[in-house]
């Protein structure tokens, strides 16, 4: 077999994303540890993240409802495989816990890290609470991870 040549090209790219009005309001709330969801006036589903329309009913979402920082673990895993974080170009080492948490007051779940990475200590239905970072800047990583409510 003759020599195989390949061409390396690194993508270093940034984009300026617009949050939209509802996500801006949500982010401003996060800065003050305040979580709000939008509620569909038809099916009553309360959505996190906030968004312009209810995809099921095709109706604009304008009503805001408060959401707790405590919720129920609906799904969980412990990831062992290191993950290349495209935002930093760095590896995120395992093992780390991840979960889908349904915060009280929301009907959708939030995908986030757990402070627990022992499968034996995780179960669907556990009550979990947000652990905030010390410095809040109005973004999802203001949430450090979730911990079990003791």
């Amino acid at each position: 077999m003759s020599e195989r040549v390949s061409v390396p090209i690194e993508m270093v790219q940034s984009w300026r994303y617009s949050s939209g009005d509802s996500m801006e309001r949500f982010s401003n709330g996060i800065r003050h540890k305040r979580i709000e969801a939008v509620k569909c006036g038809n099916c009553q589903r309360r959505y996190l993240p906030p968004r312009p329309v209810c995809g099921n009913c095709h109706l604009s979402l304008t009503e805001w409802v408060p959401v707790s920082d405590v919720g129920t673990l609906e799904a969980w895993t412990v990831v062992y495989l290191p993950f290349l974080d495209g935002r930093t170009g760095e590896l995120r080492d395992g093992p780390y816990g991840m979960g889908l948490i349904r915060l009280d007051g929301s009907d959708t779940t939030l995908n986030h890290f757990l402070n627990q990475n022992d499968p034996a200590k995780l179960a669907v239905g556990m009550r979990m609470r947000i652990v905030w970072r010390d410095e809040l800047h109005g973004a999802m990583d203001d949430i450090l991870h979730f911990e079990e409510v003791s």
């Binding site: 617009s18 949050s19 939209g20 009005d21 312009p52």
Partner: peptide, 11 residues
């Protein structure tokens, strides 16, 4: 520049 998010603009 449309300051809306992509979904808002498309909507």
């Amino acid at each position: 520049q449309d300051r809306r998010s992509i979904p808002e603009m498309v909507l």
